[in-house]
Computed example of a mutant assay.
Amino acid sequence: MKVNYKTTLFALLFFACLLLSCVLWLSLRTVEIVAVHENDNHSYILVKNFPLTEQGKINWWLKNKKMLSVTYNIPKPTQDGFFTVIFWDFGDGYKETDGYDRLCFEDMKPPRNCIDKNSLMSVVSSKNTGLYFRLDSGKYYIKESGNMEKRKYE
């Protein structure tokens, strides 16, 4: 059997370009804020097209925290500075409660006032811990110097 190296090289180059195009497209999508729900000092932001990487999610917050404050009045810290902002994947949209594991919002009328629980990132600030980000692989703390420290879950 004779191997045609030009055909093989072309196929590999084509798939590499296709993969690069997909990664580029995914990274350049605009984050869409679908809705914001609040409960005291907790804010729940429902999003589509949130960044895929943990660093991308943190960078998105850092770049957009002023816009969130101006547009949505988020975060809403308590007197001692505590707040939590949780970004949820809007996924397939609002659904009816399953009576078990969906997050339902009291500021909406049932039956379609719930979403599947798919948390993308939490941003938390308190007097004791300072600002940190909760992500799948651990917590990222912002130190006073501005540097970030990652602590894995135990």
Rank of each mutant, 00 (worst) to 15 (best):
K66M: 12
E154L: 13
V47N: 02
Y141K: 02
E149F: 04
K139L: 12
D92F: 06
L52K: 10
L120N: 02
L13G: 14
T97S: 15
Y140P: 06
N59T: 12
E38A: 11
D92C: 07
L20G: 15
T71C: 06
T129Y: 13
V36L: 10
V36C: 08
F83P: 02
M108L: 15
Q79D: 14
D107N: 05
M148Y: 04
S69N: 07
Y94V: 09
P110N: 04
T129R: 15
K127P: 06
L46F: 08
V31P: 00
F10W: 03
L103E: 13
F133N: 03
C104P: 06
M108P: 00
C114S: 02
G146S: 06
P110Y: 03
N113V: 08
F105P: 00
L62F: 12
K139H: 09
I115D: 00
N59I: 04
D136P: 02
L12D: 02
I86L: 08
N64A: 04
F10C: 08
K143H: 11
S137Y: 04
A11L: 15
K150Q: 09
F82T: 12
P75G: 07
K95I: 14
G138H: 07
L20R: 09
P110C: 07
L13H: 01
V123I: 15
I45N: 00
H42G: 01
N113E: 09
G146D: 10
L46S: 08
F87L: 11
K127R: 11
V36F: 05
T71Q: 13
L18S: 12
L131S: 02
K57V: 06
L62P: 00
K150H: 10
W88P: 00
Y72V: 13
V124E: 10
P51Q: 08
E106T: 03
A16K: 02
I115T: 02
S69P: 00
G93P: 10
G99W: 04
W60S: 04
G56P: 03
V36A: 11
I115R: 05
D92S: 15
N59C: 04
